[in-house]
């Protein structure tokens, strides 16, 4: 029994670390990020992962060791100790400092992504409307203004240009939803009654494999990339299938698509009038 329990306790850190170690090749890991701030989030994730891993192995290791060592049959008395002041100080101050380090390193990235004051100055490209159980994206028409007769409405598909700051406004028509694109490392609840401005900049989408990611000239300008837009907040029975699509295009391709859509709206409108 003693050996069995020791083994079980030992398997926790061993298999625990092993799963994380091999997770990426098994596909049990975050998808590669494509936005400008994605790598910052990933860096913070790994920073915490490493710190946590050290404490995980240390504490679980001590637990295994102590269990194994002190569960031997022994009729003498255990150590009569009520604690140790220095040790307490040590394991209060060291984790305390590390936790503060963690806290402070997060702040900049959080502020960059979410603070209103740090929103890129560009005009919103679209209003995104969530409702049970779909996404609708509203672009301005040729007049460049929202809420006029020539607005372009795109169901389920959110087309954006790559390599530039994209600002959009998130709304909900009915209940809570959440705008989640895993590759963008972006998630924000859509709240009825609120208009929440968001931004991202997809700067890696158009880089084909084999091309040098650091060389902007090597971008394949023709590629169009699709990502899943996922609803991450419970919104009713259809929550699981409230899927949208993010389509990332180069600026030219984006403009092309936009012009096409605007022309569609125009011709539909003419048909309506005739």
């Amino acid at each position: 029994m003693r050996l069995l329990v020791t083994l079980l306790l030992l398997l926790v850190p061993v298999l625990g670390v092993w799963t994380f170690w091999t997770a990426e090749e098994n596909g049990w890991w975050m998808p590669e990020t494509v936005t400008t701030y994605g790598p910052d989030i990933d860096f913070l994730f790994y920073l915490i992962l490493w710190m946590v891993a050290v404490f995980f192995v240390l504490t679980e290791g001590l637990l295994v060791w102590f269990f194994f060592k002190y569960s031997k049959k022994d009729d003498s008395k255990g150590v009569f100790s009520h604690g140790n002041h220095k040790l307490e100080l040590l394991w209060t101050v060291v984790p305390g400092i590390l936790l503060l380090v963690i806290a402070f390193t997060q702040m900049e990235t959080w502020a960059e992504i979410k603070y209103r004051g740090n929103l890129p100055k560009s005009e919103p490209i679209a209003h995104v409307w969530a409702s049970q159980f779909d996404w609708r994206v509203q672009y301005p028409g040729a007049d460049g203004e929202f809420g006029t007769w020539d607005d372009v409405e795109s169901p389920h598909l959110f087309v954006v240009p790559s390599g530039e700051d994209v600002v959009f406004i998130l709304h909900s028509r009915d209940v809570l939803h959440s705008f989640f694109v895993p590759e963008f490392r972006l998630k924000q609840d859509a709240v009825p009654g609120m208009a929440i401005p968001m931004w991202f900049n997809v700067n890696k989408a158009l880089r084909e494999e084999g091309l040098d990611p650091k060389d902007p000239d090597s971008e394949d300008k023709e590629a169009i990339r699709l990502y899943d837009l996922i609803c991450a907040e419970l919104c009713g029975w259809g929550h699981y299938k409230m899927a949208g699509r993010m389509e990332v295009r180069s600026r030219e391709k984006f403009d092309e698509w936009m012009a096409e859509q605007q022309a569609n709206v125009m011709s539909n409108d003419k048909e309506d009038q005739s």
Partner: peptide, 19 residues
């Protein structure tokens, strides 16, 4: 409890929690 406690730190870190 160690595992549950440690994974909580990710959740507390706002930028990581976005994901």
């Amino acid at each position: 409890f160690i595992i549950g406690g440690l994974s909580g730190i990710w959740m507390a870190a706002t930028p990581v929690d976005i994901y």
